[in-house]
Design a protein around this nucleic acid. Structure first.
Lengths: 149, 149
DNA sequence: GATACAGTTGACGTTAACGTAAAGGTAATC
DNA sequence: GATTACCTTTACGTTAACGTCAACTGTATC
């Protein structure tokens, strides 16, 4: 089998981050590359951890939270208590994600409305993208009420 | 019509944030409450803006990005150029949200796998929550490969 | 062997998003 | 009129997540 490895700059280039960032994640204990002399060597598993961290970042997670998530995947020492705690954590995260999912749906809905209002206000030619139907309001409340005398 | 208004502490209590936070958002130009003497008075529209900011926060947006989003809803002065730019921004945001949506789906998928592995490792009694089927891997790569000799 | 390049470890700087404390105004209630 | 509750501004402090040098080391290429 061919064991792929990566240098720090390879990973930095691939994910469009700086080497400083990667070293910082290691400082915080999120990554543990092996060494070849002093140089860091990253396994595919370490690369996957990095992907998880970055995905977490895009979702607004802190590094601490990403550390938890990695720990979930990574959990090796597992007695029953640990597993139960782990299961609780997993469901916790799932609920947080569900909230985010709802937020995204709501925001997309709002954006669709905004876009429609936007397109409706344009002369017929310039319109570019598709739209649905509805009025210009957020889930519960219009933003501009009372502002037009 | 009854025009509801809110004090700063009402809003703080409702959304479980501090008054400092609300004033900070005002400092940054995201909120513009009216005044009764020196005290801040918030209209339903301002309250909605606050909701948008907090939703943005949950989605990992910066205040700058939330300011943009508010501006989208709020756009009053609208000539064609502005509207086109607005439409572009809306689609930009929509694409970012799509990325987040995919991230969430991926993470939920991973969590489901993790939970299943977790439950599978438990003695039959303690299991609490449902599970699907699959192996313990992220979208593309297992984290622990090579770690078991 | 000089030059260039990729890597290393400190260590200090920066920014966003508030927290916290000081010092005080206002309005209702006892 | 004193207490209580809520509000204000000003200003300095804090934390997370890096950025930015500086001062090296090792490798290899001309």
């Amino acid at each position: 089998m061919t064991l792929t490895t990566y240098s720090i700059s390879k990973l930095a280039a691939e994910f469009d981050i700086t080497t400083r960032t990667i070293r910082f994640y290691e400082e915080k204990g999120l990554l543990q590359p092996t060494r070849a002399g002093t140089s860091r060597i990253y396994s595919p598993a370490e690369r996957t951890k990095l992907k998880l961290i970055l995905r977490g970042k895009r979702l607004g997670f802190t590094l601490e939270q990403s550390r938890d998530i990695i720990a979930m995947y990574d959990s090796t020492g597992s007695n029953v208590e640990q597993l139960q705690s782990l299961a609780r954590n997993i469901n916790q995260k799932r609920q947080e994600l569900q909230v985010q999912l709802n937020d995204i749906k709501a925001m997309m809905h709002d954006l669709a409305d905004a876009e429609e209002k936007c397109l409706a206000a344009m002369p017929t030619q310039q319109k570019k993208s598709p739209a649905k139907t509805s009025s210009f309001a957020t889930q519960d409340q219009t933003i501009n009420e009372g502002s037009t005398p």
